[in-house]
Nucleic acid binder design. Structure first.
Lengths: 224, 224, 224, 224
DNA sequence: TATGAATGAGCTTTCATTCAT
DNA sequence: AATGAATGAAAGCTCATTCAT
């Protein structure tokens, strides 16, 4: 991030204290990407869509700023580089996924239930943010080495949390330990990340159904 | 493809019996990528490595021809474009995977055995050609629309064959039909394609072991 | 200059008697460049250092204001442009050198003594303000045509004064007139300006020693 | 330099063996900068003129290639960067000056004569290549650190050779050793480098006269 | 069959300056 | 007296591809 002012993107930029008016706010037309939101938000939204559609390297900064109705200078006021935009997208995804998993992991109930809920939930939230998924499984190598490291680290922390649920189930005897928990995690998240290559909103199955099927497959494979 | 030469790349590379003499004859140096092979082979080998390492868009034609010890003119003699190189890599991968799956599908034995063998085999062969896997899960959108269609078609044919084994098992009652066969295929190949993001040659598990674990997970999930 | 404020930069900086209280009053931190001095002074000090270090074109306004702990708006309040900063630096240097030379020229004693003292003094004062010297011999062409003219004019007036001392010596018969006085002046100030390219504070010779040697070389060359 | 072919710029680029036709060659019009010469030569000639006129940072690559009647791509085919162009100019200057000094140093005669000839010659050759002089005393900091080091090294070798003549004269007793030889060299070359700031072709003195005067001043200052 | 100079469009990024507050 | 978001023009550089030889 570039911006010399207080307030990054976790908290809305532009105005320090009050969150900016949502789509139902008092002024202006309603279009998620090109009005009513703060400049950096709009840029991120647009960049996410374009990176997913055409790939990072094939999306020019010009296209992004045009679509966001902003000048190039403005973009570089808020972001250090095109790369920074991508890094911000990764950060947002990881933050979101991690917080959802943490909530589920911390909730009560039998471990199998928690794993099942986590497994289904990550499917639904991946489908809800399909562009993010497309980008994050395809563009890691387009980040700087430094930022790749950060992303990998964060991703590992996520995997470890998920794995800890699996091993908890294995110790409790409800999951088989024939297969190493590590491998199970990689196995499952491979499936999840690839949703973006085949899921179509007009398909027969709803996100929730797919989530349930995926969770079923995982749980059945693990049941000892 | 451009190739106005005889023979060459139409026949599957993997199964070529005799290694062809390089342009420098029997005395030239021995290096898989930059001598002893035909120019187009060398270009494909080098391109595969570089595309996997740095991504398609970040690999310049100049880098490819330099690494292959060839001039640009020569490259454009054999390939229509940089794009063509990528398409050729996709074609090679698909050809190889398809032929292996066909062989296993056509072999005898109980359907569960065939699925298990196919599941384990695709893991091993994916690991054996990890660069191909990296490229093919990351670069589809860098092909022209037309070539994307071709690749998708071919990939669908592959999936259908695999799916037919699953449905065979379901009809035979050895696999559950709780989960649609289609979904199972996508689920499993997601895991497989993602091998390229985490597999490391120096890891604890051998390719064969990983293949067995993956097949185990799939078969257990399916066992009715 | 923009300055719409009272006092400030019109009076020579070097001779200001009382250090002015900084904007943070008596309790602020003490650092020549970023506190305790008035904003325009700080900007000039910082700009001088940065222009000498990296060159005028390679120093951005942002860098200057950051280093001076000031905002862009503030800078543009005091200076018309980046160019104006440079012009101010030139003006300061010329004012300083001129006043020193005038003092020496007006002092009594044999003309050879006065030339000798002037020659040594300009060396010492150049070394004392080495950044100024670096800038002024390298950045003239970065001023607007108009300001270049002004600087050249002022510089010529300085040279004329020095030259008048030489011709005085020539007329008095203590200096040779084999070489035109004009040329002697250019010859000598070339040497002086170039001090900034080779002088190092950790060198063996002190500024005063160098001044004496330079004066010796000049006087010997002139002695008839 | 970029160019992947044999033959740099010391030897004429373009054709390997035969030096390209001079301005009197058989084909094409006669204009030093934009025709009949090889592309890299033209680029260097044009760049030298523009860098001297407007400064390195204020000369755009676009201006250079326009003036040289060449496309940007062509420029980047021959030079790695705009920086490389500048480095090449420095290299050319240093090569030339060094070779002239070596010739004079190696010639016979009393040491005072050799110093005198060298001193006068460097003035004349500096005036003959005034653009080079302008650039080289003003643009060193615009080279990369690495190339600055190279230039400084080469320049030091030049100074050492000149200094060795001075010390030879000091040991022989024809020059005073009141002033360190090192300092004398810096003193004199300051004067020489600054020729570019005041010399005008329409001035009263010819280059040769100026050379003689400069040599006179130096020699008189040194005569013991 | 192969060369490599040359093209030209497009890329990301920088930056002095303005202006509503 | 000061802020800092925003502008818009221009910068240096890359690269797939062509073509005369």
């Amino acid at each position: 991030m570039a911006v010399r002012t207080q307030g990054g993107l976790g908290t809305p930029a532009g105005t320090a204290a009050a969150p900016e008016p949502g789509p139902t706010g008092p002024t202006g037309p309603v279009s998620t990407e090109s009005a009513e939101q703060s400049v950096p938000r709009r840029l991120l939204a647009v960049a996410t869509r374009l990176f997913a559609e055409k790939g990072f390297d094939r999306t020019s900064v010009q296209e992004i700023v045009d679509a966001a109705n902003v000048t190039k200078g403005a973009m570089y006021h808020y972001f250090d580089s095109k790369d920074d935009l991508l890094a911000e997208i990764y950060a947002r995804v990881l933050r979101l996924q991690m917080s959802r998993l943490q909530q589920i992991a911390a909730s009560g109930g039998p471990v199998a239930d928690r794993v099942s809920r986590a497994a289904a939930d990550v499917v639904v939230s991946t489908i809800d943010n399909l562009d993010d998924a497309t980008i994050s499984f395809r563009s890691l190598h387009q980040l700087t080495a430094e930022k790749q490291r950060e992303v990998r680290l964060e991703r590992r922390r996520y995997h470890e949390l998920f794995r800890s649920l699996i091993t908890e189930g294995q110790r409790a005897g409800v999951f088989t330990d024939r297969v190493p928990a590590d491998l199970v995690v990689d196995f499952y998240f491979g499936s999840v990340h690839h949703l973006s290559t085949w899921y179509r909103p007009d398909g027969e199955l709803s996100p929730a159904q797919i989530g349930d099927y995926y969770a079923d497959l995982l749980l059945t494979a693990l049941r000892s």
